[in-house]
Design a protein around this nucleic acid. Sequence first.
RNA 1: CCGGGUGUGGCGAAAUGGCAGACGCAUUGGACUUAAAAUCCAAUGACCUUUUUGGUCGUGCGGGUUCGAGUCCCGCCACCCGGACCA
Length: 855
Amino acid sequence: MSTQRKQFPFTEFESRWQKHWVSSKAFQASNPGDPGFDPSRPKYYILDMFPYPSGDGLHVGHVEGYTATDILARHHRMRGFNVLHPMGWDAFGLPAEQFAIKTGQHPRVTTARNIEKFRSQLQALGFSYDWDREFGTTDPGYFRWTQWIFLKLYNAWFNPQTRKAEPISTFTGSDPDSVRLAYVAEMPVNWCPELGTVLANEEVVDGKSEVGGFPVERRPLRQWMLRITAFAERLIEGLDGLDWPESIKLLQKNWIGRSEGAQVRFQIPGGDSEVSVFTTRPDTLFGATYMVLSPEHPLVPRITTAEQRAAVEEYQKKVASKSDLERTDLAREKTGVFTGASAINPVNGEALPIWIADYVLMGYGTGAIMAVPAHDERDQEFARQFGLPVREVVRERKAANEETVPGHQGGCFSGEGIAIHSGFLDGMETAAAKRAISSWLEERGLGHATVNYKLRDWLFSRQRYWGEPFPIVWEGGKHRAIDEGELPVVQPEMEDFKPTGTPEPPLSKAREWVRYSGNAQRETNTMPQWAGSCWYYLRFCDPKNSSHFIGADAEKFWLSSSGTPGSVDLYVGGTEHAVLHLLYARFWHKVMFDLGHLTTPEPFQRLVNQGMILGPDGQKMSKSRGNVITPDSVIEDYGADSLRLYEMFMGPLEQTKPWSMKGVEGGHRFLARVWRLGLQENQEGGWELSPDLADIPFTLAQARVVHETIKKVTADISSLSFNTAISQMMVCTNEFVNAKPRPLAALRILLPLLSPFAPHLAEELWSRLGFEGAASAQPWPVHDEALLVETEIEIPVQVNGKLRDRIRVPAQASKEDVEAAARASAKIIESTAGQSIVKIIIVPGKLVNMVVRPA
RNA sequence: CCGGGUGUGGCGAAAUGGCAGACGCAUUGGACUUAAAAUCCAAUGACCUUUUUGGUCGUGCGGGUUCGAGUCCCGCCACCCGGACCA
């Protein structure tokens, strides 16, 4: 702010209250069994998304979400809820490790420093977290249980009969390792030479690493995987019971990518090979004119003919070196190579040439397709490129009165229609043809109807130092779990945790640590950052428990006592976690639920995404644009309350909105006006009680505004409409600014209403006015509906929908009386002159509309 | 290309199908002041009109439903954010 003098002494009292709240544990939540726990109060678990404590500190986007949840937490406490509102740190992760490598400082040191900074910034905003529950994912007391949960996954399988995770002991097959929820597989993975690590698909953006933007290539490697695909169906079904934005549910559904179709097996003559394909259009089987395998398909070397071998291998090599960006560039021309082999189309015995092409992905379906160029755009493009035949087998259905036109102009027809040139399918609608061909294939053992998912198993290992070590040892080429009693498995102290430059993880350099026993070695991979953030909301319920990951009583009370499938009542955070974090957490939660460790099937009942805050220039905030607003600087100039209030006043929580310093000043001015309702500045520059204050009753008008304010603020907080709640408090404040004498009762009601938004100022004023207790501990005010009823109201009178006059009528006036009053209006008589009144619409208490027509 | 979101004054925004623009910012005028800042009061969608009383138009564009549409339906446009050869 440009002025030298503060409008109110926030620098002095804000930090004082912050210290008081922390040292008095003002917002501590008690668990069942704790002294002071009151089971008659319902629970409210409100959670912010776990922050990664980066070196840059908090930004204004964090503040937006955190302020919203803080308002709700404070509001619920005042309404008598047991409120669980915790905060902690998602502290493992690549940036800390990268920084450590660059500076030579141990990531533990920099992580601790960043956490310090984050915590002090959060406390400087007056958020009402229960700091006794704070923890970080890097605390051995926490990751001990992350490792424990991994062991639960390792020792469980998905029973397709019960559709549930069960202990591996219930598996009756011969090879339990083939069904574990945590398993080892040789997988083509994203290897980033620069980072010296493998990345998850999610961490690769446009063929480059999300962190650092380095090129990524594909390599087969032995990896730990989590069998999330087994839960695909349940992860879709579970969404129904959740109060999430529909757009987020859709995002998750699309990510899981369920599609119904069929698997079809094609024999390859001259050998005992066959190739399986997945197709959503088995009805077009007669239209297949060639086949394509992914270049990585294991069958490729076996079927390639001698003449084609050189070309095929060259193509495979070229594809392998391509980044994902190049490979998925839609604009580029299709490429591919003929293998020399053919497969037999089971429906008509035709020989189909088998090609390899990188537009077929190994990771989806079976990594092979039957190409139907007449009815698939990609296949058609490829067929054109290489001069392959096109055969039409679906005719577009035309409107009844039109002549049906076989053949198509230009593009290709990929919709549903009527089967043609398809033998026994001819004349069938697409849906019927799909059913017919599926059972035809099944009867002959050539295929079957099936469901395929886009979702893939979760690549769960990383070649890094700063993550949770696996509680696994290797002996004689086989993995086994270490004893639960040996947890946590802590990383060794290492001087050098740089990547080895090979896929060998940094931990492999700690020779002593790796040697577990005479012939057993520790697993040297570490878990991804997602692991720690997958279950932190559970630990917050019972963070100190050293014998269980969460105690049964705490679990029941905080997670399941509201009777919803979800556990956390409200979860607020950015859209960037719409898919991965939320999906992973739901997956783990379901496993723990199946295994009997949790009593709810879903983690987060209600989800809200706060919108992005743009820079003052309307652009995304970024260092390079130089438009970053830091909370620290705003707090310094205007105080924490002003920052909180402004961010809530900007607009709807979920909307993207630009920053305005002038807007901050407006909020600041409002708070100053509230301050001056109670206090005035004396000659020495100190603040004393305003002489205008008096213990007098409200006027009728004042009482109405106050009770309207209680009503609206209460309703608006519940609907997360913080901006309109604030504007109503402004209206209320403006009502009293010039009231002399000014009823003390106004502040007695306004300050508790304001306290969730601007807790420091509310508390300070409350205590200076000599009110008893704390503003934040007052019961939430209740409005008196009787004070809101008006005796006489003004209603608009329209003629043909256009406003012509306003009339005053008693609030309880009958329709007849209102009509009479409207007809009596001079302006109405004038504007209806010479016309006949056809109809009169009267909405009681709202308006009158006269429909007239020239007479 | 696909999906999602948004479009209302100079700006951020309000508005169960019922008086469009609450509240805030900015601007202008006034009060207070030696002066300024702060504060308080007033005006502030556009256009027309003879001051006024008044009138016309107005929620991205084009249609529709309705006594009445920012709001509901159909068809477009623009911008923002995601995803992307998923067979």
